[in-house]
Amino acid sequence: MSSGSALIPLDRALARLLDGLGPVAAETAALPDAAGLVAAETLHAPRALPVRPLALRRGIAVASADLVGATPHAPALLPSAPPVVLGGDVLPEGADAVLPADAAATSGPFHEIGQSAYPGEGAVLPGTDLTDGAVIVAAGAPITAEAVLALQLAGIAELTVRRPRIALMGDAAGAEAAWLKARLARAGCAVTDAAPADLVLHLARDPAAVVAGPGLALQPGGDAALLVDGTSRTLVLAPRADALVAALFALVFPVVAVLQGRRLATVARALTRNMASQVGLADLALLRHTPEGWEPLGVGRVTLMAILAADAVAILGPESEGAAAGAPIAAIPLQEPFDPR
């Protein structure tokens, strides 16, 4: 193929997919089922944590103010034995530190401690783990396992998320389709096998037999077809690894970003060597991170070796003949393609 003139330009195809598109309606998800989804609202800590001081180790709970100036030669005398606590225990009222159990000794009716302690020694003081009003997860950000932990400890049992519905239909039984499904699920989408959906991905060995018309000026994946009918959006893709990788980063992820109210991430670095591209086609380029910059692994072609070694993906516009060594290239991180906010 020497020209993309008979094909739909990538920017026009993407514009058709995005026309009139906005974030999907928020839905409620329970914790911890929300892990991996995208938050529809910013959630703040409703209170500071911990509410009471907690022990960080096994020992005796003491009030640091009672031990000011205590030394082995001038121990502090306590009227009662300091209580023994374990890591995670709430400290008794007035206690703000935990000392080793052997720090206390009995001397007649008193209990001696021959060392001082500072507030928070061996303990977590109130409000030092999570401050009141702190952002736990921001709107448009992925809900990590750590965010779920903080939400649960803060007493939040559910939150709202934006979970686009993506239908994967047609020839969707192979390893390539399984990879695509896994990437979509990891991006926080609900992957189904039937319409209606926010986006339909129909896999077919001959996309033109499903949707008549020109393909896309995208390499690889030029045999893809597009059908937009009102609010229905369908991409027909050949179930090949190269075609699915190209479509995912050039078309599907931009749609998912809008549906979730977030943005694709890009990282700009210099090229380590020249990279050639075909005029008239949007070329997918696989790049590897090196100390010197982006190392091109392939342009317009996706191999398993390259995708395993790649760290980022760039889309070279149809007007480009490539880029020279040292030129800055903005690329989408392969494993974390969305802005984490």
Rank of each mutant, 00 (worst) to 15 (best):
G317Y: 15
G122T: 10
E121A: 08
D193Y: 09
L43G: 00
P109Y: 14
L251S: 02
A331I: 09
R269V: 01
D132W: 11
V210E: 11
A285R: 03
D129Q: 15
T28I: 10
G87I: 06
P196E: 04
A154Y: 09
P207K: 07
P82L: 08
L159M: 06
I307M: 06
T42H: 14
L7K: 08
A177C: 02
S3Y: 12
V258I: 09
L37E: 03
A40G: 03
A270H: 05
P318S: 13
A330L: 04
L56M: 09
L56A: 14
E93T: 10
E295N: 05
P126T: 13
L334P: 00
Q260F: 07
V137D: 13
A61K: 00
L56Y: 01
D66Y: 09
R273V: 12
L78M: 10
A139N: 04
I329M: 10
L151P: 11
T290E: 02
S232Q: 15
T234R: 06
D193W: 10
G213K: 07
G87E: 04
S277D: 06
H202N: 06
H289V: 12
L130I: 01
S64F: 03
V236P: 04
A190M: 08
A190C: 12
V135Y: 02
A327H: 12
C189T: 09
T234C: 03
T42D: 12
L77H: 13
A45M: 12
L218D: 02
M1P: 02
E112C: 13
Q152W: 09
S277F: 02
E292P: 01
A225T: 01
V51N: 03
L86Y: 12
D129M: 14
T160F: 02
G114K: 08
A178S: 11
A187D: 03
V258A: 00
V137E: 08
L49G: 05
V200I: 12
Q115A: 11
D193H: 13
I143L: 00
L286E: 04
I113P: 00
T303C: 09
A104C: 10
L201W: 04
G140I: 15
V24S: 05
A173F: 06
A157Q: 12
R163C: 09
G108H: 14
D102I: 00
G215F: 03
V85T: 05
S64C: 07
A81Y: 05
G230R: 04
A105C: 06
V24K: 05
A172W: 09
V252Y: 01
A327V: 00
S3H: 13
V68H: 07
P164T: 10
E292C: 11
A150R: 14
L43F: 01
L77Y: 08
P53V: 07
E158H: 14
R162W: 00
P53M: 01
A187I: 04
V211I: 15
G300D: 08
L264K: 11
P340A: 12
A309H: 07
V200C: 15
A74G: 06
V137I: 07
G140W: 04
A154L: 01
R12K: 15
T28K: 12
A103N: 11
A194R: 13
V258R: 05
V210H: 10
V200A: 13
A327G: 02
D242Q: 06
